[in-house]
Every structure is written in C-alpha cells, then in structure tokens.
Amino acid sequence: MKTLIIIPAYNEEENIKKLIEDVVSSEPHAKILVIDDGSSDRTGTVARETKKADIITLPHNLGIGGAVQTGFKYARRNNYDVVVRVDGDGQHRADQIKKILQPILERETDVTIGSRFLNILTRHHNFIRRIGQKTISSLISLIIRQNITDATSGFRCYNKDAIELLNQYYPSDYPEPEEIIFCKKNNLKIKEVGILMKEREKGASSLTAINSVYYMIKVILSILINILRTPTMIKK
C-alpha cells in the first residue's frame, strides 16, 4: 500500500529536520510530504535540504486545515492509499506511527485517531486545557455515539475513502473535532488507538489564553452546525 506521511509545518525550522529524520528511520517505505504553510522562517529550506521529503510551500498561511487539506489533495493526485498526519511541531512521535497505521492496513477502520488518553497515562501540565479537551471529547462522543477520548489529537491515519472525502472538504481553523463528525456523517469508521506523545521541544503552542476561548467557541459552533449538515459523499 502506497503510504504518504503529511507534515503540516508553520515556522518550525528548529523541529522539522529532526522530525523528518525520525519519520524516515521509523517508516522508511513511506513518502513524506512537508507542507510549509507560508512560514516566515526557513522551514521550507531546512526541510528541502534534507532531500528526504517532498516539500509544498504555500504562498501564504492558510492555517492548519488548509495545510492538511493540501496534503489530501496531493495524496489523491498521486494516488496514495494511506495518509498519516504528523504535526510539524515535534509533538507527535515517529515511533508511534505504526500504532495508528496498523488498523488501516488491516482494514479495520477508515480513520485512526492517536489518543493520548486511551489506556495511556499522560501527564497534564495545563489543567484548564485538559478540561477544554475533555469537554470537546465528551460532546463529540455524545453526538457520534461512540466513545472518543482525544478529539483534539491531530495524530491520525486515513484510508483511501477518507482521502477521497477530505480532499473535497476539510474544516478550517481548528479542524480536528469537526473532522470526526464530518467523517462519521459520511459513514466512515473511526477507531482510537492509545499513543505516546512528546512534550513540546522548541517553540510555543499556538493556543494562548485568548485563542483558547476562541477555540472553544469556534469548535462548539462548528460541531453543532455539523449536526445540521447532510452528508456530502455517500460511501459505496
């Protein structure tokens, strides 16, 4: 199966080289695609210099949703069977890719979510953030009637049906929770797998205090509106 690992990266010149090398060493047969989301630093150049990945440089910053969708479009154009999303900030560990890849390769599910909280003890440094995550996960679980422990995790793996769907539409700003509902609405199967994550090494998280409030409101609004939407693609 042709596997593509997409790495959306915005101003990650310090993390990107190591991440690419880690991914190459744990998944040597997969193709790596870095999407440099209009970075103002040397992310694109640093990634290109490794010569181990394809690099797409977007002309301006589209946000994580736009960047990830670019990856799905690339996957579809080049006929990939599987897409793995690994975030460029170095939070996702390359040695955990196998865990989320496995259920897709065994055709158990259409989308796998790497969860920090499923059967795994993750320490929480930020209590408020954890409450936010928990609220969103509970809300999602309630709506899709399936238990989701980590709805905000961006560490995910997708099969061909999911690629086909998500290259057509992908939520913008904070896409992870909305993506779950969107996939479920379109009859894709979702499975969570426990994974280990790293603490951030360099650079700051994109979520500051004001952003977190906006994050919660935006996510809840998009979740609620998604309930009202009809499916865009019906799986055969």
Binding site: I56, L58, G66, T70
Partner: peptide, 17 residues
C-alpha cells in the same frame, strides 16, 4: 483563494520535480 493557494503549492512542487 484557499483552493488557488493549495493548487499553486501542488503545481510548484511538480514544476520543481
């Protein structure tokens, strides 16, 4: 604009290749 930007990114990579 988003769709155009994504297309530009994809085509830019293909041209480089």
């Amino acid at each position: 604009i988003k769709n155009l930007s994504q297309k530009i990114g994809l085509l830019d990579l293909e041209i480089r290749k």
